[in-house]
Design a protein around this nucleic acid. Structure first.
Lengths: 209, 209
DNA sequence: CGCTCGGTTGATTATGGTCAATTCGCGTGG
DNA sequence: CCACGCGAATTGACCATAATCAACCGAGCG
């Protein structure tokens, strides 16, 4: 598709959309990781969702509804910035894409619910396990897993801010998962060593994706 | 509108939609409180959203996407069960309603994000304050506040399950809010005694609703 | 070489969970 | 009419989980 024309590379830690933003273009992530997040006055951040290659940033913004959170890259990214007109055109002429987009929205909403349940009723160990299962699943479907392992360019801070605990504790939780032989994570490479146990621990069900 | 025809009364604690449900009718809440929620194997429940009068239950279910959570009444309710055809008809012939529905969806999504941030990065006291502010706001816009107070038929268990803490702790948090003169809550009637302080405590911003 | 960032560790504190028991109001059946 | 049971709120004692504070390490980089 002609979207490649609009793709550009952006640095890590670039704010793609500010809170309350109303813009006239759509953003589509082609490579790299980004996040939706909110901040408190204290500076504390809550990551609401990870955006991975293939995800769209829009959320009614094109219809004039201001965004209620910010979007920022977590790694260097390839992002397509598609003008509103071209984007609407694309959807109008490719109903399958429009359908896929609707599907993606529902999946993202389901994921948000999953995260809420995750933070609200799971222990830190279970939470982390659940998130890793989800990442494995999502990245798997877009072909980012090779040889049972994948590149996970997220820092422990990024994980902690998504799961709602401190980085120190996040670190210890990851160590526990490693010590128990469930995962291996080093040098930004994640490998799930015991998928079944990890899923069981997290009570992970992949049907929402 | 002719929806009144479809309205019926349902008992408290009635499951309106089961997880994974795919149905051919839309549900609209006319009176009472309901909740979207998930359950863990342990029986623990996480409430994902409160549904109040005027809210629609559908969530892509009419488009054949199974629901990823269950919906249950928290009080006796008046619910309209509108057949798919009639519902689509309604939306097609009343674009303003369709627009309002889209708006409502985005608001609900924004609220979900707000809740995630709430659970993820606020203390139990702040969380509770935030939820009460939100309820006050939402119920106010549909005219359910009279004389500065409102009927809040939710139990402390319902609040605790939405906020992600134990009922015992929820009880103590409410007592603290009362002791500090921020709210008064008894016999199912809530009154916000110090709106400004409560909002400040919760860092509550109402622009997402 | 010194800096920063990300990860790691230990010690201490605090927040909130769990368990168990009590009260109160209300409705129901004997 | 009253005993009983149940749901909801409440209390106290104790425990577990996770936050905070502080320091340190190692790699990469200007």
């Amino acid at each position: 598709m002609g979207l490649a024309y609009y793709v550009r590379s952006v640095e890590r830690h670039t704010v793609l959309l500010e809170q309350e933003a109303v813009v006239d273009y759509a953003l589509i992530l082609f490579a790299g990781f980004a996040s939706r997040y909110k901040r408190r006055m204290s500076g504390r951040r809550q990551i609401l969702a990870y955006l991975i290659p293939g995800d769209h940033c829009d959320r009614g913004v094109l219809d004039g509804y201001p965004l209620n959170h910010a979007i920022e890259t977590l790694t260097r990214c390839e992002v397509a910035k598609v003008p509103r007109a071209a984007y609407l055109n694309l959807l109008a002429f490719h109903p399958r894409i429009a359908l896929a987009l609707q599907h993606a929205r529902l999946a993202e909403e389901a994921t948000a619910h999953e995260w809420m349940a995750n933070i609200g009723m799971r222990s830190s160990l279970e939470r982390t396990a659940h998130l890793l299962c989800e990442l494995m699943e999502r990245l798997g479907t877009i072909g980012l897993i090779s040889g049972g392992q994948l590149d996970l360019p997220l820092t422990q801070v990024d994980l902690a801010d998504a799961l709602g605990h401190s980085t120190v504790h996040q670190n210890r939780v990851l160590q526990t998962l490693r010590r128990d032989g469930l995962i291996s994570l080093q040098e930004r490479r994640l490998r799930i060593l015991a998928p079944r146990q990890l899923r069981e621990l997290a009570e992970f069900e992949d049907d929402y994706l």
